[in-house]
Nucleic acid binder design. Structure first.
Length: 569
RNA sequence: CGGGGAGUAGCGUAAUUGGCUAUCGCGCCUGCUUUGGGAGCAGGAGGCUGCAGGUUCAAGUCCUGUCUCCCCGACCA
């Protein structure tokens, strides 16, 4: 490929609305262009890199017995009604109507589609297990698209779905997929971590997220030296030691205009750890209370999944005063004005002689004891994990945090979809059973962004060898020179013949511009052919990651051999 | 959706209290000179100042509406 023919308009400056390094570099290097918020055009250079990632994933999926299919991008409403997700998915689901006013959605994921396909054809245990996967554009009307293609409204995802006779077989296959995902991350050159995660709108019993470690990542990972890792949304919290002090008599104390735990704690000179904080939530419109230790925060993701509700918001002040009988800041579990469901976080259970709101303006209660002074409906782990918390796995280690980019997510779905969509098979006894499912998603476009996020310098992108849009760039300093041209073409032929993607910068530009563009585009290996070196029979060879100091002089055939060796061709 | 900021050429930007033909750099085109880390000179093309109204002798600038984009909080590959 000649650079002069390549549609790769590079920019010296990034558009002012590009927010992270990967987005800036992708735009500057001519990989992508922005059309609207969260919508991007892929130019040849961007598409080449995308296809490389796609092929790595494809190879791993095929190696794990996956079979590639293509499902539609548009699905009829009826399938989504069957699983209930027409409503659950909410505003994030792009919806549209056809000319007959029939309703459809643009697929944000394809559990419905693939389950519908399989239930029509898979009727016997003899046909199981099977794994189907596809590469398809996914649509999600994100509340706030940002970070270039990292969180776009339209993106390329590989989604795979496996079907099994029982949980045990799913478990076996899930491990295989887990390994395939690990392989993909390794082949992409990621520093990554697979962590336990919350399943969100996809559902199922258990899931893992594959996180690329990066400070710019949107996700927060709680991890321990023992190897434990979880998304903080999911990370289990250890229970606190029970306080066995003698139970004192409950009393009311005046706390004028002091509502927050911090202020009241200071005013009464009692540690926030002795407080039971009462949060009033609206779960799908139904008011309910969550009790939690004063110095902890409610993890709303945990709460939402515990309740199984679609919408969860903190109650407004009006609702709070209607329910508790007091303004915001004085809610407590003892004698609330209205009876509502009360859920206690595990942290609230073991506090003796606690401080709570009195459900009365300007008053709190001291020496409140659970089961004596108030009752609760259920208890669960509902709090946010904190740095230095005890590790839930090894119990001894301390939790630390790291940031990550979620590039893949694997789920054990179980029978969630087969049940609602009635996907069954006949077992060896002729008995009908629900098919057990797994689901495996990986963001192809996001991998591209994550790669750049993790591998760049002040001059531009530094592609890993196997994702680069071109593996080699040949820069003839003066392409008009006959000898230079001859050597350039020879190297190009030798490398191309082995299946490598090679770019020749044939432009009539100064050497500096060619070097800058090559660096910006991040092409891993560069061969510079200049007349002076050529007089001695040499060309220059340099790896992008090495910088100027890494330049080596060698014979053209040696440079070719070096590259073929690196690519094992 | 709530709160904060911004829309001027492909990109980055300037324009005093409202005032003359809307500024500059990069990029683009032509020519000459250059030619190993974003060259120099000369010439040139490119704008409905987001859009629609309004105020005014006069609007990029002020007012109203609207759209878009970005940032901060709730979603997810």
């Amino acid at each position: 490929m000649f650079f002069s023919k390549l549609y790769a308009p590079t920019l010296r400056e990034a558009p002012s609305d590009a927010d992270i390094i990967s987005a800036k570099l992708m735009i500057r290097s001519g990989m992508i262009r922005k059309v609207a918020s969260g919508l991007y055009e892929f130019l040849p250079l961007g598409l080449r890199a995308l296809r490389k990632v796609e092929n790595i994933i494809r190879e791993e999926m095929n190696a794990a017995d996956g079979q590639e299919v293509v499902l539609p991008l548009i699905f009829p409403k009826e399938l989504w009604i069957e699983t209930g997700r027409w409503n659950v998915y909410g505003k994030e689901l792009f919806r549209l109507k056809d000319r007959k006013d029939a309703e459809f959605c643009l697929a944000p994921t394809a559990e419905e589609g693939v389950t519908d396909l399989v239930r029509k054809d898979i009727k016997s245990y003899k046909h199981l297990p099977i794994m189907l996967y596809q590469f398809g554009t996914k649509f999600r009307d994100e509340i706030r698209p940002r970070f270039g293609i990292m969180r776009a409204r339209e993106f390329l995802m590989k989604d795979g779905y496996s079907f099994h006779v029982d949980e045990a077989d799913l478990e076996r296959y899930y491990k295989k997929m887990f390994q395939a995902y690990t392989n993909i991350c390794e082949r992409c050159g990621f520093k990554f971590r697979a962590v336990e995660a919350a399943a969100g709108a996809i559902g199922g019993s258990f899931s893992h997220e594959f996180m690329v470690l990066a400070d710019t990542g949107e996700e927060e990972i709680a991890h321990c030296e023992c190897g434990y890792g979880a998304n903080t949304e999911k990370a289990e919290c250890m229970t606190c030691e029970p306080d066995t002090s003698e139970k004192l008599e409950m009393e009311e104390v005046l706390t004028p205009n002091i509502g927050t735990v911090e202020e009241v704690a200071k005013f009464l000179d009692i540690s926030p750890k002795k407080f039971i904080k009462t949060m009033i939530y609206l779960a799908d419109g139904q008011p309910m209370a969550v009790l939690i230790r004063g110095d902890f925060e409610v993890n709303e993701i945990k709460l939402q999944s515990f309740l199984g509700c679609i919408e969860l918001v903190l109650a407004d002040e009006k609702t709070i005063s209607e329910i508790t009988g007091a303004p915001l800041g004085f809610a407590g579990p003892v004698s609330m004005k209205k009876k509502i469901k009360v859920i206690a976080d595990l942290s609230a259970l073991n506090i003796a002689n606690a401080v709570t709101g009195a459900n009365k303006k300007d008053y709190h209660l001291k020496n409140v004891n659970i089961n004596r002074d108030f009752k609760y409906d259920t208890a669960a782990d509902l709090r946010k994990i904190l740095k230095d918390d005890a590790c839930p796995k090894c119990k001894n280690g301390k939790i630390d945090f790291a940031r990550g980019i979620e590039i893949g997510h694997t789920f054990k779905l179980g029978t969630k979809y087969s049940e609602s969509m009635n996907a069954t098979y006949l077992d060896t006894n002729g008995k009908e059973n629900l098919i057990v499912m797994g689901c495996y998603g990986i963001g192809v476009t996001r991998i591209l962004a994550a790669t750049i996020e993790q591998s760049n310098d002040e001059n531009g992108i530094i592609w890993p060898d196997n994702i680069a849009p071109f593996e080699v760039i040949i820069i003839p300093v003066n392409f008009a020179d006959e000898k230079t041209k001859e050597v350039t073409e020879k190297i190009y032929k030798d490398l191309s013949a082995k299946g490598l993607d090679v770019l020749i910068d044939d432009r009539d530009e100064r050497a500096g511009i060619k070097f800058k563009d090559a660096d910006l585009m991040g092409i891993p290996y560069r061969i510079v052919i200049g007349e002076k070196n050529l007089a001695n029979g040499n060309v220059e060879f340099k790896a992008r990651k090495d910088g100027k100091e890494g330049i080596k002089l060698m014979k053209p055939e040696e440079a070719v051999a070096e590259i073929l060796k690196i690519y094992k061709k």
